[in-house]
Design a binder for these strands. Structure first.
Lengths: 217, 217
DNA sequence: CACTTAACCGGACTGCGGTCCAGTTCTGTT
DNA sequence: AACAGAACTGGACCGCAGTCCGGTTAAGTG
């Protein structure tokens, strides 16, 4: 909780081979050694596989290590901790979403007016998170890290950009956080599952929110 | 993750002696046996003590059990799991806050106009959570339960009430959730600590939010 | 191509959260 | 007061996250 944080080289997101991380700006990756890179991809593949067949909640770190024919220590060295592995797994999916709203077609992509992009952002995220619910929940088990994750940072920046283009009044950064909070996996899941709300209702709520918080004074 | 949930009598909030839980409506408490009630209070006392001296993060369930001269199983039977114990610990503090905005003096209490109460709610919660930061973070480690906790439910209901009194347009429940999300312990902590924002800025953000989301159409 | 060194590897080890169940203690009933 | 059964108790037990460190291997240097 307030530890000195031993070593943990802080290298949780080094890309490997075909994996392209240019989207989520990784502050700098120290370049993995060849064997280490190989192991990393194998670990991710195996983890995804196990998650698919028995549910991510029933995949222990040790199981991943064993299935990838690697020592447990290796897994932890690479990903730091369980949440780190989840985050890495998630990263792949996240990139699809990011591509959609950074370079995709309207109304999400850059060829639509800002107001429309902002509107479209909500449902896109809601649906995306719903599709990968388990993983998001598991990954954000450590909530503190969540706010620091590149993915979250990117979303935040995107929203702030759109809001600025719209000349939205007020504290843009805080408003962006508020909007993102509305899209939180756990909140959406709670409202849909526990409270029995419909996706349409959540989307309508988003449109309303965007209208009131994004409109120029 | 999708288990049948063995027993867990779902009795996590039975009051004991002087502890008054009428505020956070506890759906029904099966009345603890005399010895069990005694143990419960001792456990909470001991836990609070240990938390105070070595930080809540460094207090294991076993340590609490031992210090209270009780078996480990007893602790888990009483509180379900670690988060349950945290929640119970938190409950006491939470009641102070609840009393403040349910029955306290203006501008928080019922003798002030709704708009003022709504405005005052934000800073009150922000400051309260900041004061008990560690505990909130530990307790909400299990985020799914968080949305179901009586405390959260009460806050939500309170906000919804005020919004309704203000004749705020839109989907009241969703707006209440959005507002509450802005006050999330973890978000606030992130903004204050990591992003170096000032408390004043967060409060100003709240006032702005309330004005735009609470104003009648 | 030999050599140095930094990085990596694996698996034994620790501590904790959570479960289980045989034995004990309370509470309501007659 | 005696009894039956429900509720509680405690500690042995399990599996997993995360640490540690002696041995190994890859990447720069001449």
């Amino acid at each position: 909780m307030t530890e000195p944080l031993p070593l943990l080289p802080a290298q949780a997101e080094p890309p490997s081979g075909q994996v392209d991380l240019t989207l989520t700006q990784t502050e700098e990756q120290p370049r993995l050694r060849a064997d280490a890179a190989r192991n990393r991809t194998r670990l991710l593949e195996v983890a995804a596989e196990l998650a698919a067949e028995r549910g991510i909640g029933n995949v222990s770190m040790e199981a991943v290590a064993t299935a990838a024919k690697v020592g447990k220590g290796t897994v932890f060295r690479r990903f730091g901790d369980r949440a780190g592995l989840m985050l890495a797994l998630l990263d792949h999916h996240e990139q699809q979403l990011q591509a959609a709203f950074l370079m995709g077609p309207p109304p999400l992509g850059p060829d639509a007016p800002a107001a429309e992009r902002l509107r479209a952002f909500g449902p896109a995220v809601l649906r995306h998170e719903r599709a990968h619910r388990d993983l998001y929940v598991a990954a954000h088990a450590d909530l503190a890290r969540h706010y620091l994750s590149p993915a979250n940072h990117l979303r935040l920046g995107h929203l702030a950009l759109l809001l600025r283009q719209l000349k939205a009044p007020g504290d843009i950064e805080l408003i962006a956080h508020t909007l993102l909070g509305y899209l939180s996996t756990l909140l959406a899941d709670h409202l849909l599952t526990e409270r029995g709300m419909s996706m349409e209702r959540l989307e309508a709520g988003w449109y309303d929110l965007v209208e009131r918080l994004g409109a120029a004074a």
